[in-house]
Design a protein around this nucleic acid. Sequence first.
DNA 1: GTATAAAATGATAATTGTTATCAATTTAGG
DNA 2: CCTAAATTGATAACAATTATCATTTTATAC
Lengths: 125, 125
Amino acid sequence: MNYSRQREIILETLKANVVHPTAEYIHDVLKKTEPNISLATVYRNLNQLASFGVIKKIEGLEQSVHYDHNTHEHYHFICDNCKKVFDIEANVAPDIETKTHDKTGFLIHGHEINFHGLCSECQNR
Amino acid sequence: MNYSRQREIILETLKANVVHPTAEYIHDVLKKTEPNISLATVYRNLNQLASFGVIKKIEGLEQSVHYDHNTHEHYHFICDNCKKVFDIEANVAPDIETKTHDKTGFLIHGHEINFHGLCSECQNR
DNA sequence: GTATAAAATGATAATTGTTATCAATTTAGG
DNA sequence: CCTAAATTGATAACAATTATCATTTTATAC
């Protein structure tokens, strides 16, 4: 992977966002300082970074893919109301892969968990 | 929800399939006996059945949505090799919603878990 | 039964998110 | 600096899904 300024600022933008932005969102942010950056470049670099394990894709939330610079194992919570995506770092499902392997015989390479409901802020309304 | 023959055969087809088919797949199957059935009708009815809780959508597996007539809580395993979707009925994550609520304060309405890896058949190759 | 309003259909256009293509530019070494 | 490989921007293409709309079906009231 060669150096590229675009890839650098895409990764920076992803890290600067607490939320888990989509490619479209990152593109919108970057257009302000880098008016010529192409949406294809954003998609390409996010996918490349993900394939190298530098970032992670979060799929299955809405219609579009979100990206996450936090690559250690954690889960996601999406608020039904404000649609924000939150990290869940707590180990709420201990040994889930071992248990699942033992009960099914499947060889498990990974898993993901998505919760939905109301975030703290949206509950207070 | 009024009666419709198309909806009936769509649901039948979904139930007859052990795998968790996509709308496209159901449409392909139905075209053999019902050549005029429209893909839009299939999508419309699957979404309607899902919104009434008769079936469930499985999102986040690949690019397209899969449908499931099994509506009680269970998880999914997708084989990285053959791409088949399997049910996991075992309770591999006890009290996960309560635990997550206690640790985060989020009000949790639901969660889903997807595993991926190699199914038994694909391991033996 | 027939009239009527609501629901559903089929055909297809439109939309959305994403990937492919390709000529031009940039990068990393020799 | 030269060259090959990597990357870019622009845009066409694509795939999955939804919207539109005229026509047909369904449920119900007379």
